[in-house]
């Protein structure tokens, strides 16, 4: 099986949340208790039971409303800092599938609160989540149980607009670059986020932080992580 990636084209996302629900359904994750907080984003954040979350962000640009949608999920890093961190502190919950590149958490491995804190903090995209009750960690699995059978991840399968794409990494990168080229004329700020570093290539058309605080990792953080874990190649390219 070839190295895989997602291409997540936010220019096409209508926040129907089919991905969020399909993820819960496939993974048999329960609906959590939520309240209306003055936002359509619910649940409020990723959790042990929520691997995929469409984030809603409202703002005004040149007196006009903008409403950005960001279908957040694990980036499945090429060199996952969470895994490096876990290994460095002796937590054996995280593996990386060599064939696909999927980064997998074993929720049955008990992780202590302070260990989890370090693992979560090691992730520049703030993805890892932990359950106090079971002491296990969980996040997006790349639908590993589906893709190894040749199926698409549930979120991609259900997406009606073409926002969620999945396939061989080179094909996804090609698709992302082509789409970036296509939208650049209308959206000069369009960019692909940290795509060298991970396998969930987001296309956004405005400052990433306007979508979500952790949409894009600060390159200095990646650089710092790089020193701590293994040096990441081509850091300078990411600084652009």
């Amino acid at each position: 099986m070839a190295d895989k990636s997602f291409f997540i084209d936010t220019t096409k996302c209508t926040a129907c949340r089919g991905c969020q629900i399909a993820c819960k359904q496939w993974n048999m994750n329960p609906g959590t208790k939520t309240v209306q907080r003055g936002s359509h984003q619910n649940p409020e954040d990723l959790s042990y039971f929520t691997y995929k979350l469409v984030r809603f962000s409202e703002l005004e640009v040149d007196g006009k409303p903008r409403w950005y949608f960001f279908p957040d999920q694990c980036r499945h890093c090429v060199q996952p800092p969470c895994k490096m961190m876990a290994e460095s502190i002796g937590v054996k919950a995280i593996t990386r599938d060599e064939a696909t590149g999927a980064v997998l958490y074993d929720p049955k491995v008990k992780v202590k609160a302070d260990e989890f804190k370090q693992i979560r903090e090691s992730c520049p995209w703030d993805i890892p989540r932990w359950d106090q009750k079971t002491q296990g960690m969980a996040k997006c699995t790349m639908c590993f149980d589906r893709i190894k059978e040749g199926l698409l991840p549930a979120c991609v399968k259900t997406c009606p607009t073409g926002t969620m794409n999945f396939g061989d990494r080179d094909k996804m990168l090609e698709m992302a670059q082509q789409r970036l080229k296509d939208v650049k004329a209308m959206y000069p700020k369009a960019q692909l986020l940290n795509y060298d570093f991970h396998r969930a290539i987001f296309l956004v058309v405005d400052e990433p932080a306007r979508y979500h605080k952790f949409a894009s990792a600060d390159t200095t953080i990646i650089a710092a992580l790089g020193k701590f874990i293994n040096p990441v190649q081509n850091i300078s390219q990411l600084a652009g």
Binding site: K33, Q36, N42
Partner: peptide, 13 residues
């Protein structure tokens, strides 16, 4: 009655 949907839009607004 569907937990995933009521989780996403839980209350009257």
């Amino acid at each position: 009655w569907l937990p995933w949907l009521i989780e996403a839009e839980p209350q009257m607004f």
